Simulated scan of single mutants.
Amino acid sequence: MKTKNLYLAAVAIGFFAMTSCKSTKTEEAKDETVAVVTVVQGPNIVGVAAGNENFSTLVAAVKAADLVETLSSEGPFTVFAPTNAAFAKLPEGTVASLLEPANKGTLTGILTHHVVAGKFDAAAVIAAIKANEGAFKVTTVQGGTLVASLDGANVILTDENGNVATVVIADVAASNGVIHAIDSVVMPK
């Protein structure tokens, strides 16, 4: 609410400043730099994921890996977020094992393999795939590589081990980036 009030105050001040200028000041105003204030409202990546029951396993994993603060920071980030169904495809006991404190490093590596620095919406990903002869390599925050390609109209991610995930929901907006839900967990090498 405080951010909204600041935004409204900035808009009101800007409006009154513009409308109160006399016509003799018009030439001077053309050479001045105009400051633009952009206020992004809404939840960050962690907040968006926490608000969607399809990401409850991912949220539990992010908490166990102590990545809440990182993924709540300014970013921007693009997160290829495995759904609960994606985690359920892993061998039985894998998720429970990864959530144990002793496996925090492994879990952190897996989760950060799903994160790319920068904000890449679906249109940008598709354009990059097409501009790179059908296969666009992206480096993850973990340091590994994912290859984005198209299967018909679907964006497919292939990890360095040959595992494949399909983007099932694209362009879930967050204040610090964008989330693309995927149907499988991709793994680092």
Rank of each mutant, 00 (worst) to 15 (best):
K2A: 12
K2G: 01
T3P: 05
T3S: 12
K4P: 07
K4V: 13
N5T: 15
L6Y: 12
Y7S: 15
A10M: 09
V11F: 13
V11I: 10
I13K: 14
G14C: 02
G14E: 01
M18H: 05
T19S: 15
K25D: 15
T26P: 05
T26D: 14
T26E: 15
T26V: 11
T26L: 15
T26G: 08
E27M: 07
A29Y: 11
D31Y: 11
T33E: 13
A35T: 12
V36G: 09
P43N: 13
P43Y: 10
N44V: 05
N44G: 12
I45L: 14
I45D: 09
I45A: 10
V46R: 11
G47C: 03
V48I: 14
A49Q: 07
A49E: 08
A49S: 08
A50D: 06
E53C: 08
N54S: 15
F55C: 11
S56I: 08
T57S: 13
A61P: 03
A61M: 12
V62T: 03
V62M: 12
K63M: 12
A64N: 08
A65M: 11
A65Y: 08
D66L: 00
L67R: 10
V68P: 05
E69V: 10
T70F: 01
L71D: 04
S72A: 09
S72Q: 13
S73I: 07
S73R: 04
S73M: 05
G75N: 10
A81H: 01
A81S: 00
P82Q: 05
T83E: 11
T83P: 08
A86T: 08
F87Q: 07
L90N: 07
L90R: 04
L90P: 06
P91D: 09
P91M: 04
E92W: 07
G93F: 12
V95D: 05
A96Q: 14
S97Y: 12
S97P: 11
A102S: 15
N103R: 06
G105M: 11
T106Y: 02
T106F: 06
L107I: 00
L111D: 03
H113N: 09
H114F: 06
V116K: 03
G118N: 15
K119Y: 10
F120N: 11
D121L: 13
A122G: 00
A123N: 10
A124I: 01
V125H: 02
V125E: 05
I126M: 04
I129C: 01
I129R: 06
K130P: 05
N132H: 07
A135H: 04
K137M: 15
K137W: 02
T139Q: 14
T140S: 07
T140K: 01
Q142R: 10
G143M: 07
T145G: 02
L146N: 07
L146Q: 03
G152A: 08
A153K: 13
A153T: 14
L157I: 00
T158R: 14
D159Q: 11
N163K: 14
V167E: 14
V168S: 13
V168D: 05
D171M: 06
D171H: 10
D171G: 06
V172A: 05
A174K: 07
A174N: 01
G177S: 08
H180M: 02
A181Y: 02
A181I: 02
I182T: 00
I182F: 02
I182L: 11
D183Q: 03
S184E: 13
V185I: 04
V186K: 00
M187W: 07
M187K: 02
K189C: 00
K189F: 09
